[in-house]
Every structure is written in C-alpha cells, then in structure tokens.
C-alpha cells in the first residue's frame, strides 16, 4: 500500500537518511527500532512532509510522488491519507478535546459539523475519554492528551497512522494506558508505522520489526525472528543493551 524508495535526507552537513527503502501492506503494524540519531523520526516526518526529503520516491496506492519535488496539491493529498501522532502530543491548546478531534474533519475534509462530532465522540470513546470531550489540553494529564492525539488520528480514518515515539514523553505509569489503546486499534486492523522504544509493543502487536542505525535499515523481519535470532551484529548489540530495560516496563 505504501512503498518508500531510496529516501535521502541531510540537515546541513549531517546526512541522516542514507537511502532507505520501505514497504508496508494494508493492516501491517510495523515497528521501527534503533538508537537515537538513526533517522527513525526523520523517516516518519519525511513521509507526511513535515520534513522535505532530499531524494526519494513514495508510491501511495495509485499515487507516485517524488519526495523532493512534490507539489502542494500532492502533499495535501498524501496528508489526507495519513495521520500523525506526535511525541509531545501537539494538541491544539485553544480547542477542547472534541474540537481537537473534529478540526481535521470539519476544516480539512469538509465534513459537516454534526457528523464530525459523531465521529469525534466515537473516537474519543474508543480511547476511553468520553467524559473529557469538553476539556482543554491544559486540564488533561500527559497520557490523556496523547490518547486524544490518537483519537484525533483515528477519526480521520487514514490509510496509515504514523506514530513518532508516542510514549517517550510520558511518565512510566501513563505509558500503559496509551499502549493499551494502540494495541486495541492494531487489533482492529489499522495500518500503523510506529517508532518506539517499547519492546512489549513490538513483541506483542507488531507483525514486522525494522532495525535502523546510522541512517539505513540494518535488518527487518518478523518480531520473533528479530528478538530471538537477530542476524546482524549491530542488531544484536542494540538488543543486548535494550532488553534488560524491557523487564522493568513489561507488565
């Protein structure tokens, strides 16, 4: 459904993405692991054009787009097919939870207000926040804000939802509630591309794990393979360092 070919991106003199190829089928739950600086977040941000890649191609369903020279219209079309969940939630501070969720529908997709509100309420119910629809972000905890962020993404019914380290900014006690929501929408068949450090999510829910390091994909495979039989040296080293953490966060 989504295919990325040969994506390159530099910031000044630093080349962050050194030629990455990616293929995602409908219903896939893909987790990207890797040390910081490996380019995982940049990859995600290039897909929905929050960053402009220096080189690369994206084939989205029947759309074929050059990532460097994409026109405004093409960018807008791609953004209609994707949704993004940010590390620091980025909820609209001047809107209530419900308004946050319906903003994209009403303004971006021109859905009539009554229908948008229905969809929005449903999405908020799915993430367990029906009682907070009229609360402002400043009145919500971090975990609640991120769940609203996820509801905002779900409501748009996109082809794929991009998650950029959704739980990294949360206190440990609040990580669980967000992961639970993510697991439930994965079970419903949502296509997800997730950058995270939460190994439990990768193990339990993902059907494909990608390990990135130094701007390239080092290894990609099913989770059972990656975690128990990593083929590459770098992957093994990374997992050795990271897995003990797993015991602390695993419920």
């Amino acid at each position: 459904m989504l295919e990325i070919k040969n994506i390159h991106k530099s910031f000044g003199k630093n080349e962050i993405l050194k030629g990455v190829d990616l293929k995602i089928e409908k219903g896939d739950v893909v987790v990207i692991l890797g040390p910081s600086g490996s380019g995982k977040t940049t990859l995600l941000r290039c897909i929905n054009f929050l960053e402009r890649a220096d080189e690369g191609q994206a084939i989205f369903g029947n759309m074929d787009v050059n990532l460097k020279s994409a026109s405004r219209k093409q960018i807008h079309q791609i953004r209609q097919k994707t949704a993004f969940v940010f590390q620091n939630y980025n909820l609209f501070n001047n809107k209530t939870a419900l308004e946050n969720v319906t903003e994209g529908l009403i303004i971006g997709r021109k859905v009539p207000k009554a229908e948008a509100n229905k969809i929005g309420k449903l999405a908020l119910e799915k993430v367990g926040l029906s009682d907070k629809i009229n609360s402002y972000p400043s009145q919500l905890s971090g975990g609640q804000q991120q769940r609203v962020g996820i509801a905002r993404a779900i409501a748009l019914n996109p082809d794929i939802i991009l998650f950029d380290e959704p739980t990294s900014a949360l206190d440990p006690e609040l990580v669980g509630e967000v992961l639970t929501v993510m697991k439930s929408i994965a079970k419903e068949g949502t296509t997800m591309l997730v950058v995270t450090h939460e190994m439990s999510f990768a193990k339990d829910v993902a059907n494909k794990v990608i390990f990135m390091d130094g701007g390239v994909i080092v290894e990609e495979d099913a989770p059972e393979e990656i975690f128990s039989r990593p083929k590459e040296e770098r992957t093994q080293q990374f997992l050795k360092r990271v897995i003990p953490e797993d015991y602390i966060y695993n419920i």
């Binding site: 994707t82 940010f86 980025n90 609209f92």
Partner: peptide, 20 residues
C-alpha cells in the same frame, strides 16, 4: 508543533495559521 499537528490533520497552511 501546533502548526505541524494542524497540517497533519489536513488543514492547509493558511487554515492552520488562521485557526490554530
């Protein structure tokens, strides 16, 4: 991030600026 979130949900840059 406010602007980025706005364009991510499908608002045009002008709409993102005006409304958010």
């Amino acid at each position: 991030g406010q602007f980025e979130a706005a364009v991510s949900v499908g608002l045009s840059p002008a709409q993102a600026f005006r409304r958010i």
